[in-house]
Design a protein around this nucleic acid. Structure first.
Lengths: 245, 245
DNA sequence: CGCCCCCTTGAAGTGTGTCAAATCGGGTGG
DNA sequence: CCACCCGATTTGACACACTTCAAGGGGGCG
């Protein structure tokens, strides 16, 4: 049972996600587990994990909770650039001391830990490769988000977005069948998808009416992900080693 | 005269851009100039520099020409994710052999060369730092693009976009005062900014009528960049060492 | 000269935004 | 256990930014 494991080991999501990217050595796993156990700290809702314009701290791994990378315009308009999920790494492959290009906000209480430092790894470690691959996956999702905002309708944006989150939650071992927790308000969805919360509401209703998703109590179920993926021409991240299953 | 220098040394734009990011050693400059002279090749318009889903080749530096990173949907809709300009690096900090997440297309005839290989650099080289910083700047621009598409009006999108391109051209030493060449069709602009070419046309007219830009013969002039930047809440890339001037 | 691509313009349609009010649901205090 | 409150969701009516469709014009190039 993956979910039970996630409870026992705080770094479980990170381990799952990274081993879907590269083959981790046993040493790597220990390093991650140790870092997860010894350097973890909590970030309360609404707190900023990283603040735009300030020097970034050490690279972090996300053990639990949801965050969002955001930009806020001077008149209050807000854009969510990406969501930060358990298993994700942030700030790896950045030069130390560089200024953050955007703010990362905790949407739910989060637990984070410091990612093992790249300079102090054994020679046979595959973590450097994992870090590089992890950031190319992040870049892929940024590109997908651009395409969503630029060329998809509201209906397609929602569907495509839910597919992506489902994929990412699955990588972190946080799905059961095609269902996962998604503790986002419709206003958050709106800020991510470039719409208003009113329109998000109507669009989600349309998706439910069409029977492609159901949602209740912060839990989303995709009824037929592959059919939906085909419908909205959804692309999955390349460079992920598909599980045998 | 910077422009004359750009003619004499093919790697001039790369040198200018990278030295705005980090302090380059004399050895670094030689490496870049040599690579620029010895490994350069041309890419004809409409040719793909990188093809989505295929393994990426060696990291490249752009010596001349314009390219675009694109995604195409199955029904023909197209989104331009970013533009590739002289001085840019592409594919640095990616694991060799990984699959490309998007296609890079030459919009004009391009000249590219292989970027000096990270493994073969002298210890005092600052190129690794430059590569890392260069890709965080790329990421910054992706984030800006998301914000443009998600939360700005057509008018703001165009203005913000032109400011960004002006900034980048200036880094590569390709501006004169506030004017630069921009060989993009309005359809390209539309595909980048998530609009139709018809609407781009009308929006550019509005910008001209308001006296904020003028454009003729593929040359754009921004009449008062800082006022415009303030108007549309434009943000410049962090981590760029401003020239003393 | 004539073709082709790109830009330009007009008129009409629609997806999404705006504004405002009602309802729901979960927490809190009496 | 009920009364209240607050944020989130839902609904309706209307407005408008942007799209669509279609036709015309301009400039480079064979």
């Amino acid at each position: 049972m993956r979910n039970l494991a996630a409870v026992t080991d705080p770094a479980e999501s990170v381990l799952l996600r990274l081993s879907a990217i590269v083959e981790l050595t046993e040493g790597d796993r220990d390093l991650l587990r140790n870092a997860g156990a010894s350097t973890q700290r909590k970030i309360a809702v609404r707190r900023e994990l990283i603040s735009e314009g300030e020097p970034v701290s050490r690279p972090l791994m996300i053990l639990a909770g949801w965050g969002a990378r955001i930009r806020v315009l001077s008149d209050g308009r807000r854009q969510i650039l990406s969501f930060v999920l358990p298993g994700d790494l942030i700030g790896v492959g950045r030069q130390r001391g560089a200024l953050a290009s955007s703010t990362v906000l905790a949407l739910k209480d989060m637990v984070v830990a410091e990612a093992p430092c790249e300079q102090l790894l054994p020679d046979d470690s595959s973590l450097p490769a994992a870090y590089v691959a992890s950031s190319s996956i992040d870049e892929f999702y940024l590109q997908s988000h651009i395409t969503r905002l630029g060329r998809l309708t509201a209906y397609e944006r929602c569907a495509d977005f839910l597919l992506e989150i489902g994929e990412r939650m699955s990588l972190a071992g946080l799905t059961e069948k095609n269902s996962f927790r998604m503790p986002l308000t419709q206003e958050c969805l709106a800020d991510a998808l470039g719409l208003t919360s009113v329109h998000i509401n109507r669009t989600l209703q349309a998706l439910r009416k069409d029977g492609v998703i159901s949602a209740c109590g912060g839990r989303v179920t995709l009824h037929d992900p592959s059919a939906l993926a085909h419908l909205v021409d959804h692309r999955r991240a390349p460079n992920i080693r598909r599980r045998a299953a």
